[in-house]
């Protein structure tokens, strides 16, 4: 395949960015989108140019490091992560636009790399269970009803990629935050901190400069892990409940 890429290039956080056009040849339809970018970067390095910076790690759809808005869609046209998006989803001769996540709370570091540490601070504000570490506890010591376990697991699938924020017209982090709040809140281990967790995480989410929810639903459509929009509904209820209890 031969493709025309238009890629966002930005030297650093303070610099002005712009789209640059590149031709890439010899792309196999079995390549992942990131391998296609690797191909481009090899050529750029050989030519002595600065390679395109982009985030990646596991390349198997489980770590949440990869990003990219491809032709206006977070993680591109398929419902998966960019590392698991294959070039067979495109046609020979296509022009593909590649942009970074755009949100005030996710400033661009370089090219397609954005700073997602705002998510880490939301997690630090309550997205954990306070427990002594050590040997793994006996699995059957705390029974968890099957529906609760399934509910928790559905939300535990969130990999923290930030596609929800990138897709949201308000740059809101509601889907991510609600996935974490619901995952831990429904489990017996998470119950003692149920109220302080949601209050802390929502407060931090607001402090990071994310927008509010208008129930546009773009986040759930973009999420590679299928976190449902109703996750937000549930968090809203949890928040009001916790605010009423005052802790």
């Amino acid at each position: 395949m031969r493709l025309t890429l238009r890629v966002w290039r930005q030297k650093n956080a303070g610099a002005e960015g712009a789209m640059s056009t590149y031709e890439v040849d010899g792309v196999s339809s079995d390549m992942s989108f990131l391998e296609m970018l690797d191909t481009l970067n090899e050529e750029l390095i050989l030519k002595g140019e600065d390679p395109v910076a982009f985030d990646h790690d596991c390349r198997e759809g489980i770590c949440g490091a990869c990003s990219l808005v491809i032709n206006g869609e977070a993680h591109g046209p398929e419902r998966t992560t960019t590392c698991q998006l294959h070039m067979r989803s495109f046609e020979d001769g296509d022009t593909i636009d590649v942009e970074p996540w755009r949100a005030a709370a996710f400033p661009v570091v370089k090219d397609l790399v954005v700073d997602r540490s705002a998510f880490d601070r939301i997690i630090q504000a309550g997205g954990y269970i306070t427990a002594p570490t050590g040997a793994a506890p006996e699995a059957h010591a705390t029974p968890v009803p099957k529906p609760d376990a399934d509910f928790a697991f559905e939300h535990a699938e969130c990999i923290g990629c930030g596609a929800c924020v990138a897709a949201c017209p308000n740059g809101a982090a509601m889907l991510f935050t609600s996935a974490k709040v619901n995952h831990l809140g429904v489990l017996p281990q998470g119950a003692p901190e149920r109220e302080s967790r949601v209050l802390g995480m929502v407060t931090q989410m607001d402090e990071e400069g994310f927008g509010g929810c208008t129930l546009a639903g773009e986040c759930a459509t973009a999420c590679p892990k299928g976190i449902p929009l109703f996750s937000i509904t549930k968090m809203n209820r949890e928040f009001v409940r916790a605010a009423r209890r005052g802790r």
Partner: peptide
């Protein structure tokens, strides 16, 4: 207040505009 915050939280626009939300949602 919320609208001002939302607009500030999403400063850059993408090259493609493909809103998948309904007309009613976008005209609130």
């Amino acid at each position: 207040q919320l609208s001002r915050r939302d607009i500030k939280a999403r400063p850059g626009k993408y090259l493609h505009r493909k809103p998948r939300s309904s007309y009613a949602t976008r005209t609130m």
